[in-house]
Simulated scan of single mutants.
Amino acid sequence: MRKRGIAFEALDNGILSCEDPKALQRICDGLDERKIDRLLRKWLARLPHPFDRRDRAAGYRYALSILQAEFALTQVLDRPVTGRIFFEQVIRENLDIGRPGQVQLIFDRRVNRRTPGRFRTRVITEGVTPSLHVDYKRSRIKQYHKEGQALRTETTINDTRDFRVGRLLRNLPELRRIGFAANRRMLEIEQISHDCALGEDAFQDLQRARHVHGQRAPALRFADPKVQALLQALVMFVFVARGFTNQDLRQAYAVLLGLRPGEIGPGHMSYELRRLRLHGLIERVPKTHRYQLTNRGLQTALFYTRVYSRILRPGLALVSPQAPAASPASLQRSFRTAEQAVNAWCDQVKIAA
């Protein structure tokens, strides 16, 4: 960019700002396998090597192979402090992202018992900058708050055969597609997980029965324990990538209800699947008997389960008269103060509360 006279501000090994972002992107896209190969041929013509003219005429040549490839996405934050808070929340919400089902979703590769390698999430803190690492076979995704000003997501492929791709340089475009797709999928999962709030209309729509093409879908009432169990089963990421069957969901659903899988019949589970499908939370995988969550379904399941398990259940336990004496009392005091204020106002206007 200096040669072209394009003003920019560096961010370590990235770019913080640039007066011509489109030109910058064209420069980055121009680093392809042909340009790298030309650089190799340039230096091979200058440096001594064992292939003489006759060897080269016979077809003996050097070929570049890829031992490691890194594909990074740097998103500069206009409010770095807010960005750091967001990233720390993302880490908390996605500590299970290294589970096989999650890795499968991110890398779009099937993971089974025979798949080698580790599948784990690690949170590493260097100084005061946390980073999130997701391992898949010999490759990994790293995400961190770069220089306090940007969110950096980078996929490092240490063995191209992890993705059934050869090592020769001509495979760089396919590796590039895999790497950047993994970065984007990671961010999409985090976005849905972080921003799972539902609007009033969407929430109320779930509390009522729906009629779709003459079919009736019973309501998904928030306070219904069976609905909570059903959505907790759905939110398991292992079901997201390759879909799930009636039996898959039935087993998880039964455990959450404290039942054995055999105590819930396939017919009852078909009823629940139909209800979820008509509400738009799941969709059938074409030409199969498997289902997958929609974005609306994942958002709804996260909202229902998080509000219930993180706000309502612990909050009501704190304000209950039976709450342990050692539990935080601030919420109890607030409710008691509000109750006393209402009672005092009722006394003033001579209304029995």
Rank of each mutant, 00 (worst) to 15 (best):
Y304W: 03
A57F: 09
G267M: 07
T153Y: 10
Q251C: 07
N158V: 08
I189H: 01
I264C: 02
R84Q: 10
R140I: 07
L31P: 06
L31I: 08
R122N: 11
A317S: 12
Q332T: 05
R41L: 05
K42F: 15
M236A: 05
I27S: 04
K3Q: 15
D32L: 13
C346M: 09
L302Q: 05
R274Q: 13
L276S: 05
L273T: 07
I106K: 05
P218T: 15
R250S: 02
D135S: 01
A254F: 00
E70V: 06
E70C: 08
E93I: 06
L64M: 15
N343L: 13
R79L: 09
F86M: 14
L298Q: 04
I97A: 01
C18I: 06
K350H: 15
V123I: 14
H213A: 10
M1H: 10
G166K: 07
Q251W: 06
L281N: 00
V103K: 00
R161G: 07
G14C: 11
V307N: 01
K350Q: 15
K287D: 11
S139K: 02
G98H: 08
R54P: 04
L273W: 04
N343E: 13
L230K: 00
E19P: 10
I85F: 09
I192M: 13
P173N: 12
I264Y: 02
I178T: 05
V238W: 04
E9G: 03
G267Q: 12
V342D: 00
N171R: 09
T153D: 08
H194A: 13
R208D: 09
G179C: 10
K287R: 13
Q232S: 14
Q215E: 14
L64C: 09
R221S: 06
E93F: 08
L73P: 03
S330H: 10
A344K: 15
T153R: 10
P225L: 02
S65H: 08
S17M: 11
T300R: 06
P50F: 04
F222L: 05
I91K: 05
D135N: 04
A223G: 11
E126L: 09
L95Y: 11
Y304K: 03
L312S: 04
G98E: 11
R275Y: 02
G117T: 06
H133I: 08
P314Y: 03
F8G: 00
L298W: 00
C196W: 09
K137E: 01
D55N: 06
H211Y: 12
K137V: 00
R284L: 06
L64G: 05
G127V: 06
I124M: 12
D224S: 11
S139R: 01
N158K: 11
L44W: 03
R313H: 06
G98F: 10
